[in-house]
Structure formats: C-alpha cells, structure tokens
Amino acid sequence: MRIVLALGGNALLARGQALTAENQRQNIQKAAESIAAIAQNNEIIVVHGNGPQVGMLMEQNAVYHSSSPETTPYPMDVLGAETCGMVGYMLQQEIKNIDNSLNIATIVTQTIVSSDDPAFSNPTKFVGPIYNSEDAANIMMNSDKIFKADGNNFRRVVPSPQPKDIVELNQVETLLNAGNIVIACGGGGVPVEVKDGKYTGIECVIDKDLTAELLAEKLNAEMFIILTDGSVYKDFGQETQQEMKIATPQGLSEFDFPAGSMGPKIDAVCKFVNSMKGDAAIGSLFDLNGIIGHQSGTLITKGEGIQYYQ
C-alpha cells in the first residue's frame, strides 16, 4: 500500500522540550522505529513538520544579527530548506540504523504558493518556542512579530498560504518507484512563487499537512496519515471530551477546530477522502501499526456521521 505519512514537528520535539539536537534525535529514533516497522510491506513517503525547528533558527538569526548588524537575517524559505536537511538527515540515518536493508532518500522540495493568498493578512501558523503571556506581549510591543495562544502558552505565528503545486514531484515519484522510503516536502516544502518563469522564495511557512495531502493526491496514495499527539476528539480538553474512532468529512464539518493546530489537519484529511483516492487517519506516531489496522487513532472515510471509542 502506498502511504503518505505527515509527521508533526511537535511529534519530533515534545511540547516545551528544549530545542537541542540530542532531544530531537531521541524523538526521531522513536519515529524511525514506527516507520521502519511498516516499511517492508508498504511504499512510504514521509512529510515532516518544522515549526519548532524553523522557529529556533529564526531566534538564532535574531541573536546573531544583534551582535553583527551587517549580517542580515536569512529569509524563511532558506531556513525552511535548512530544516529539511537537518530533520531529513536524522530521520534517514535512524531508519537505516533500525533496518539496514531499507533504502531512504531525503529530497529538498519547493512548494509553489501565491503571494496574493489571504493568509498573508492573517498569520496562523505556529513556529518556534513557547512563551508566557507577559514575555509574548513584550516581544510584540518591541517588534513586528505576532503571537497567539497555543494552549496555555503563546507562540509566534506566521502566514500559512495554500500549497498550489510541488516543483520536484517527478523526482519524488522516481525515488519512490526505485524502492526508497522518500522524505520530501519537509515543513510543507520550501515556499516559492513563480514570476516571469522564475522561482523565488517567499516569507512564510506552508502547513505541512496541506502539502502532504497535495502530495498524497498527486502520487495516488492509498492512505494518508497525519501523525500527531493523538486522535481527533469532540470537546477536546473538557470533561465531556470523546475520542473519535471513525469520522467522515460530513460529520467533521459540524465541529469547529482551531485554525492554528487541528483545523488544517481536519481540512487536509477531509480533502483527501473527498478526492476519492483513499482513506485518511489522524493518530499517535507510536500507534502507527494500530492506525493502519484501524485499531487506534481516528479513521476518516466516506459516509456519514461519527463513531466514538467506547
């Protein structure tokens, strides 16, 4: 079965965890175990997030610029490309360490967006470390950065436009057909726009779940799985919360999911199911076998209504 896995940046780096290489590698080792366990019997494409990672590079940019004003900060498209190399390298190495018979390739991919996208006037994509309300307010007062609530904390938000196309799609298909696990479109892909036939980077972060869905459609994947903290819930975080076992695009349309977190994931899985290519799922990275076997996570499929775990 051809499966596109969308691996959240927060699954690779736990919420509130220090942004160290050691912490990332430890989490990536766990991710690699789950991926390697299903790789022998399936074609796997991995799309990883980069919110914490690109946010860290942005912070490092700012610190370096303060001590060396002539060194202008690198733009977000370049930082995104850096995270593709960093996370891709760790993933492919750790998957190989678990099963040396597997072939893994990481490819830096460009994703086309439009500078006219309305997302540029309403930033929603979380990047970087968490802050308390006081620190976030102080930063906003002294810069052009925008922060929004992420649970009980605050994180910076940047524009997240819709992905239009994937420049290196043919190369991804070639690597996949050659028997590789392919790590592609990291962080949603490096954001670019096309003007006068030329590609140029653009300042934003594309939601990796939406790019992963686009990739799944274009590669004719049979299943699209978003791996995050867990399943989809009704009334998440409240005493009345219920874990969804099976959901449909129609059923999910009756709920209001947060734009900066679960909302794009729901949009992505519903779009894939509505494309009639196959089913989708949302669940924990560490329940991947169970998700594929419909024993854990939330399966999104055609039909009506919602079924809950008992």
Rank of each mutant, 00 (worst) to 15 (best):
V4K: 01
A6W: 02
L7W: 05
L7K: 04
G8M: 03
G9T: 09
A11G: 03
L13Y: 04
G16Y: 05
E22G: 06
I28F: 11
Q29D: 10
N41S: 15
N42G: 11
E43H: 10
I45C: 07
I45M: 05
V46F: 04
V47D: 02
V47C: 10
G51P: 08
G51D: 09
V54A: 06
V54F: 05
G55W: 03
G55Y: 07
E59G: 05
N61A: 09
N61F: 11
N61M: 11
S66L: 12
S66V: 01
S68R: 14
S68K: 13
S68G: 00
T72E: 14
Y74S: 08
D77E: 14
V78D: 04
V78I: 15
A81D: 08
E82R: 06
T83M: 11
G85P: 04
I95Q: 00
K96R: 07
D99M: 02
S101I: 01
N103H: 04
I104P: 00
A105L: 07
T106A: 04
V108D: 01
T109K: 01
S114L: 08
S115M: 08
D117S: 09
A119K: 09
A119R: 05
A119I: 12
N122K: 15
P123F: 08
F126N: 10
V127S: 05
Y131M: 08
Y131V: 06
A137K: 15
A137N: 13
I139A: 07
M141G: 11
D144P: 00
I146T: 15
F147I: 06
A149K: 15
N152R: 13
N152W: 06
R155Y: 02
V158R: 09
P161L: 05
P161I: 03
D165V: 00
I166W: 13
I166S: 12
V167K: 14
N170C: 04
E173R: 15
T174Y: 15
N177F: 02
A178R: 15
G179I: 03
C185Y: 05
G186T: 10
G187P: 02
V192Y: 09
E193T: 14
V194K: 12
D196W: 01
K198S: 13
T200A: 10
G201Y: 13
I202Q: 01
E203S: 09
E203G: 08
C204K: 05
I206D: 04
D207V: 10
L210K: 15
T211N: 06
E213G: 01
A216Y: 08
E217M: 08
M223Y: 02
F224Y: 14
T228N: 04
D229P: 00
S231F: 00
G237Q: 08
Q242W: 01
P249E: 07
Q250H: 09
S253Y: 06
E254F: 09
D256W: 02
F257C: 11
A259T: 08
G260R: 03
K265D: 06
K265I: 01
I266K: 03
A268I: 02
V269F: 08
V273K: 07
N274C: 01
M276K: 15
M276A: 12
A281T: 01
I282Y: 01
I282L: 03
G283F: 04
G283N: 06
G283T: 02
L285V: 08
L285H: 02
N289G: 06
N289T: 13
I291Y: 03
G293C: 03
Q295V: 02
G297S: 05
T301V: 06
G303C: 02
Q307C: 07
Q307F: 06
Y309D: 07
